[in-house]
Design a protein around this nucleic acid. Structure first.
Lengths: 257, 257
DNA sequence: CGAAATATTGAAGTTATTCAACTGGAGTGG
DNA sequence: CCACTCCAGTTGAATAACTTCAATATTTCG
């Protein structure tokens, strides 16, 4: 099935898909029928193993735009798989400023930062109306003890989160131009992996949130987006982004690693 | 037992301790007798459970100063617990520059970034002659399936690595002065947790390596160390650091979170 | 519709980097 | 043992990059 370009607003606000395209998760809280299984926790598990972990998801939960899924300090009991929509992970600093630690879209797992201290280490806030699968962590550990496939998959998932963080650290030592370029390309890559258009998308986050994540001011983000627009690397219209010259962006981003 | 101030050179070059102080790991590759068990993988496990995981460590390995424990791209098969000495984790960028991702001392676990892709994601290089316990990862998973205590401990360890990375990301958005202050205080804290002096220590890494880690140039690191020296927050003599006014440093560092 | 939030753009100011000169130790070999 | 060299570190001056402050435009949402 060839992924078709779908308007971002349509795409993400559609909570009840009418087909079984891999782009759209079923509403049922069952991994074996979920369109996201190749991106999410069950990645790489065979069909019969999938059946066994269907019981891992305890419930679906809707989170409205701007609502929190969990907050820093909340007792940790479950991790969450994003089914639809998107989230930011953020920290509120002592002076009230907010630091964005990452953005998450469908297929991503949220909340593993809570395991270490038995409470969540940051806030997860929905950037739009979203759905998550609630996965009680005790159940992950329980089934992991019985199924080495799931156990290993979960370990890989945590390890990859660490490697991703390495990437963020690298990013934070690059110039503002490089940071913005890498940010855009990273979004492209993630959308593409989900069958969405990699060349055109809606930013669900504000310039301020992007800036916070990239360690820049919102003005700097805006300026570099404008510059990319001027140099015809992208077309920006508010939150609509159209990638016109991905190779060109990659040249800029390539200055990093 | 009150931790006594030990000269850093003495402390770290001493490979065969003569007592059973918690400061010094025994040479035997057995967790139940290891002085680091409260900092390392076995943290929180009861004595009888400790016995069961004694088999988890496969061997000890010595790594000479400047030698690599593993390199980015190496096939992943084991994680490592630092017994003595210290390491840097680094990435070599396409242009040959080196990016330091972190520093690790005794009790720290190295290599978990390799789980996700089955190969190591960065280089681990000894900053001085060091010893590690080699822990085959297959054995970690195997014993984890049988012992929920170890399983949970390992999950917490990975989760904490992620939270630590959050801290690094925060740090990289702070001013150079704050970064250097936080770096020093973090070293203090980690040394103190191991029973070493928190107020006086030897830096095993160069200014360039500190700068790389903190996202600063070596000159900027040097300048801020000098400024802290001038303002009597610390006394610097080459790689010897004496913390004179930890509260003062904390005030500066506090500007972060 | 109107208020509040978000985004853009310019100018001035601050901070860290770059380039460069110099100092001091550690290690080497005569 | 001393001279030599190399590497690490310090310090200064000029430059570049990002931030801050400010004004204005645009959009979103109640």
């Amino acid at each position: 099935m060839i992924p078709v370009r779908v308007d971002a607003t349509e795409r993400v606000s559609q909570t009840m898909p009418t087909n079984s395209s891999p782009n759209f998760p079923h509403l049922t809280a069952s991994c074996s029928n979920c369109g996201l299984r190749e991106l999410c926790l069950p990645l790489g598990l065979s069909a019969d193993k999938l059946k066994r972990i269907d019981q891992i998801v305890c419930a679906r939960r809707k989170v409205g735009r701007g609502e929190g899924l969990y907050r820093a300090g909340d007792a940790f009991s479950a991790i969450y798989a994003v089914c639809s929509g998107s989230f930011k992970n953020k920290l509120v600093l002592h002076d009230g400023r907010e630091q964005v630690m990452g953005f998450h879209i469908s297929g991503d797992i949220l909340g593993i930062d809570g395991i270490g201290e038995e409470r969540h280490g940051c806030d997860a806030v929905a950037l739009e109306d979203s759905d998550v699968c609630v996965i009680p962590f005790a159940r992950v550990e329980e089934i992991s003890r019985e199924m080495r496939g799931l156990q290993h998959q979960f370990h890989q998932l945590m390890s990859r989160a660490i490697v991703r963080d390495y990437g963020v650290m690298l990013l934070l030592n690059a110039t503002a131009e490089v940071r913005v370029a890498v940010f855009l390309l990273d979004l492209c890559r993630r959308f593409a992996a989900r069958g969405y258009s990699a060349s055109e998308f809606h930013l669900r986050m504000t310039r301020e949130e992007i800036g916070s994540f990239l360690g820049l001011t919102l003005e700097t983000v805006s300026r570099h987006l404008s510059r990319f627009h001027e140099t015809k690397l992208i077309a920006v219209l508010q939150k609509h982004i159209h990638i016109l010259d991905a190779p060109g962006l990659k040249v800029i981003a390539g200055a990093m690693n």
